[in-house]
């Protein structure tokens, strides 16, 4: 390659239940580790200022923007990406199924991050009102759907009858 060598750091993470190890530069972002080193291209990059949420993954039970995390800082973590929700081509995760049923996606680019966020939202609040849903989606930008059917999809997953704001 070249005579230039960066100091590399070994990162070991559990990704979707599989132990993965990679040697990375300190500057490598988690999203690039996932996409470029581990081949998990379902996690997308939509901005560079932590606004859009297309890169959202789950790290140790928390939804996180993987473009704003250094890969080297995640060593030892358990990470779930969109590819980890419906494993082995099996049944869709309920959030995935609801997005399909309610036409909550168009171009699909924001969808993986959106689904990862909704998954956490419902974990913390199984029965959100419409305004709680919209507030809970503050970290994800969708340019196609106007959020209308994303809200409908999340409402369909609420554990109880609609609760009004």
């Amino acid at each position: 390659m070249t005579d230039h060598t960066e100091e590399l750091h070994v990162v070991t993470v559990d990704v979707n239940g599989v132990r993965r190890t990679a040697s990375v530069e300190a500057r490598k972002l988690l999203v690039h580790l996932l996409r470029d080193d581990l081949g998990l291209t379902g996690t997308h990059v939509g901005c560079d200022t932590s606004q859009c949420g297309a890169c959202t993954v789950d790290i140790d039970g928390q939804a996180v923007k993987s473009c704003t995390v250094l890969a080297v800082m995640t060593s030892g973590s358990s990470i779930t990406t969109i590819e980890g929700l419906a494993r082995g081509g099996g049944a869709l995760h309920p959030v995935q199924a609801a997005f399909h049923e309610h036409h909550a996606l168009q171009c699909g680019f924001c969808t993986p991050g959106m689904i990862m966020s909704v998954r956490q939202m419902l974990g913390q609040n199984p029965n959100p009102t419409e305004s709680e849903i919209r507030h809970g989606l503050a970290g994800n930008i969708c340019r196609c759907t106007g959020y209308n059917n994303i809200v409908r999809a999340v409402q369909s997953l609420a554990s109880e009858a609609p609760r009004h704001d």
Partner: peptide, 16 residues
């Protein structure tokens, strides 16, 4: 009709 193309997108298998 629900979209026939959705499966790949909701599972992260879209190919951009």
């Amino acid at each position: 009709l629900r979209r026939r193309e959705d499966f790949k997108f909701v599972t992260g298998k879209g190919r951009y």
